[in-house]
């Protein structure tokens, strides 16, 4: 039987596909260094002069502020998700108690609930609690909506966890808390980092809740900030694109550095 060598064809298609994937990024970068008239007269040429001032202006007009807000909200939410989901998943995976199965199913059904479906009452609830326009009003729902998926991932992680280690630690006189802090947590780093990366990307990019719950410009997160910029500088594409570039670069760099962990974190998903 003769085999046709498909390899060159596959390579060619792959190169075409990768180019399509890459071009928008390149165009973004090039355009963000132009002036507005340049953008209109010659959208595809290289900039005559590299207008780094677009970046300076975008940074000063708000990107710096939005970046900090996003960082704060993301870090706090992710840490809270790790603690809360970690504890819950460990309890579910390791011990027997009445109602365990029910709790497990209850927690993970949360994944099928889109944030949209609670938008109206969430807004009303936080309004009565005077928590609109506050970090905590944003972080609370982020943590809650992060739980189902994280519990799911960590639960399967803890199931594969060697029980012998824990038994040995118990024999050495560790109590449950010490066991968690000294043995389980350090050994669960791969699982926890999966969750952190996953939820981190999600919260960093979340837009809908921020749009509803925040109206104070000083508290806006990056995605919302970018949308405001879009309205404000609609005809000033270079400035807008400089902001988009700056909003994207940190997480893109982080991704390139942590590529392996990113990919491994997803491997957990499909196991």
């Amino acid at each position: 039987m003769r085999r046709i060598n498909f390899r060159p064809l596959v390579y060619a298609l792959l190169v075409v596909y990768l180019t399509i994937m890459l071009l928008p990024f390149l165009w973004l970068l090039v355009s963000s260094l132009k002036t507005t008239p340049e953008m209109f007269s010659s959208p595809f040429s290289l900039p005559a002069v590299l207008r780094l001032s677009n970046f300076v202006e975008a940074w000063q007009t708000g990107v710096a502020k939005y970046l900090l807000n996003s960082l704060l909200v993301t870090v706090v939410s992710v840490v809270a998700i790790l603690v809360v989901s970690g504890l819950a998943a460990y309890a579910l995976a390791r011990s027997q108690f009445p109602g365990r199965n029910g709790f497990y199913v209850l927690l993970i059904t949360g994944y099928a609930i889109p944030i949209h479906t609670v938008l109206v009452p969430l807004y009303e609830m936080l309004r009565s609690a005077q928590a609109l326009n506050s970090y905590i009003g944003l972080i609370g729902p982020y943590v809650a909506f992060g739980i189902p998926f994280s519990v799911l991932l960590l639960y399967s992680f803890f199931l594969d966890f060697p029980k012998e280690l824990e038994e040995a630690a118990r024999l050495d006189g560790c109590n449950e808390l010490q066991l968690l802090a000294r043995i389980v947590a350090p050994l669960s780093l791969p699982g926890l980092s999966s969750v952190a990366i996953f939820q981190g990307v999600f919260i960093w990019n979340e837009f809908l809740l921020a749009l509803i719950l925040i109206s104070d410009d000083a508290l806006k997160t990056l995605p919302f900030g970018l949308v405001s910029f879009q309205g404000q500088y609609a005809a000033n594409w270079p400035l807008l694109l400089a902001s988009v570039t700056m909003a994207t670069l940190p997480i893109l760099l982080l991704y390139v550095v942590l590529q392996r962990q990113f990919v491994n974190s997803l491997a957990g998903l499909g196991k």
């Binding site: 309004r127 005077q130 609109l132 326009n133 509803i212 109206s215 104070d216 410009d217 309205g231 609609a234």
Partner: peptide
Amino acid sequence: VRDYANEAYKTAIQVGVASNQ
């Protein structure tokens, strides 16, 4: 003084006026 772009203002003012602050 807080400012909003045109399209964003339509939501912001509804949500803002209804809020406690």
